[in-house]
Design a protein around this nucleic acid. Structure first.
Length: 392
RNA sequence: GCAUGGGUGGUCGAGCGGUCAAUGGCAUCGGGCUGUAAACCCGACGGGUUAAUUCCCUACGUAGGUUCAAAUCCUACCCCAUGCA
């Protein structure tokens, strides 16, 4: 029996609509997964994620939860689902990205990565094995292999060495993952229907902007074999066209019967463009981080609620948005909340942004199912550019 | 009325003869956030002008004065705070 099941139900060009079933929820793809690094999607209660926003899967992060509160406490309290009360699917990142983003605080070896905790500076060690152990304690539905994500501008040789190590780490991740499953260390075990009730494991393809290296990484990763495949190492400082080129090259070559997950991406435009090139899953901090810092996404482009021009604007963030924030609150009020430092501003804008992203993906899925995605893409991208004074 | 301290750019507050259009905080204005070290970071912030760290103008309560040179020293006046009558 398999831990997850994914079926394509419609396709248009490279774009695919599908149904992903995990032991904890049914997820329609293409899907956007809100990021909940520390066991919370910042500023948004699970009640909202479950009802209005209807997110079926969110992220958690190995590195952050490993540092605080620690895997042992979470295990003791029954895993991340039980601890946090989120009962739908979880995807946990392996800590691999932190190997990249905490570059000044780490020491990298074949064995793993020695970190200085960003919280108190203490020494911590993370390896493929430890990452799997932590993720088993978290009990997520989708576990990510522990990888290294080199900078976008890393040269060919350095990127190649990195991807080869990532492949070795992927094998070690898988080996330890299987042991842990067999030992019953997964706190999220949940037998249901025709699924095994176990965790699933995704491999990660690296290679930066070098297509031959992407190909090499793809071969190494698929040879090991995973339940799903992720494209890592994009949107880390490279040109946007490089990202699209890599996706366009890589996605169609990835296994057709497994979900394809583009890690850490992206803007509304990126999502549509990546779906167009064959990607099924996304996650990004953008809706919540920008939400906290005054940036709101609308069908006509981004707006910055701090701008003085919104001081007397009685219109909602996005006139076309059906979310509860847009139905009730004006830009003028939201701006006032932001300017006065009220936490509600961050909460409300994060909520709207998530609604916008999730709603966008619903429209994308509907369009693929109706065979109108190509037109939708064109119209959506055109409208995004508008952002004229009359609109904002 | 007397005594003491003080009046600086939107605001609070440094500066106490030249390197001062004047440190810094806040406010304001703008920009940026892509597997979250981020309720954060960066920039602008008297007016005009320039290719420019260029030049000009207006500014440190008001009015005079000393000096080559004053936000900085002196005199008078006007305000404010505290204390004493």
């Amino acid at each position: 029996m398999k831990p997850i099941d994914w079926k394509v139900i419609a396709r248009e060009g490279e774009a695919r609509a599908g149904i992903l079933r995990t032991r904890r929820s049914v997820i329609e793809t293409p899907v956007f997964m809100p990021v909940g690094t520390q066991g919370t999607v910042k500023g948004v209660r699970y009640e909202w994620l479950e009802t209005e926003l209807d997110a079926r899967i969110i992220l958690g992060n190995t590195y952050h939860l490993f540092l605080r509160p620690g895997a042992e406490i979470i295990r003791e309290l029954g895993g991340l689902h039980k601890f946090s009360t989120w009962n739908r699917s979880l995807l946990t990142d392996s800590g691999g990205f932190q190997v990249f983003s905490l570059t000044d605080l780490r020491k990298l070896t074949e064995e793993g990565v020695e970190f200085r905790s960003h919280i108190d500076g203490s020494k911590k060690f993370l390896s493929p094995e430890i990452s799997m152990e932590v993720q088993a304690a978290l009990g997520s539905e989708i576990v990510m292999v522990f990888d290294e994500c080199p900078p976008g501008d890393a040269g060919f040789e350095r990127t190649q060495k990195s991807l080869q190590m990532t492949a070795r780490w992927a094998q070690r991740s898988k080996d330890r993952f299987n042991e842990l499953q067999n030992e019953g260390q997964d706190t999220g075990f949940w037998e249901t229907g025709d699924l095994s009730g176990r965790q699933s494991l995704f491999g990660i393809i690296q290679g930066a902007g070098h297509l031959p290296l992407r190909r090499e990484s793809l071969d190494l990763t698929t040879a090991i074999g995973f339940d799903g495949y992720a494209i890592g190492g994009l949107s880390v400082g490279e040109e946007k066209s490089v990202m699209y080129d890599v996706i366009e090259y890589l996605a169609p070559q990835m296994p057709a019967d497994a979900p394809r997950y583009l890690m850490g991406v992206g803007t509304p435009e990126d999502l549509v463009e990546a779906v167009h090139r064959g990607v099924d899953m996304f996650d990004c901090v953008m809706p919540t981080r920008n939400g906290r810092t005054g940036g709101a996404f609308t069908a006509r482009g981004k707006i910055n609620i701090r701008n003085a021009k919104f001081a007397r604007d009685a219109a909602p963030l996005d006139a076309e948005c059906p979310c509860s924030v847009c139905r009730r609150y004006s830009r003028a009020y939201l701006r006032h909340l932001y300017q006065t430092g009220e936490m509600l501003a961050a909460i409300l804008i994060s909520h709207h942004n998530l609604a916008f992203f999730l709603d966008l993906m619903r429209k994308v899925r509907d369009a693929i199912k109706l065979g109108t995605f190509s037109r939708f893409r064109k119209e959506f991208l055109e409208k995004l550019q508008e952002n004229t004074p009359a609109d904002v």
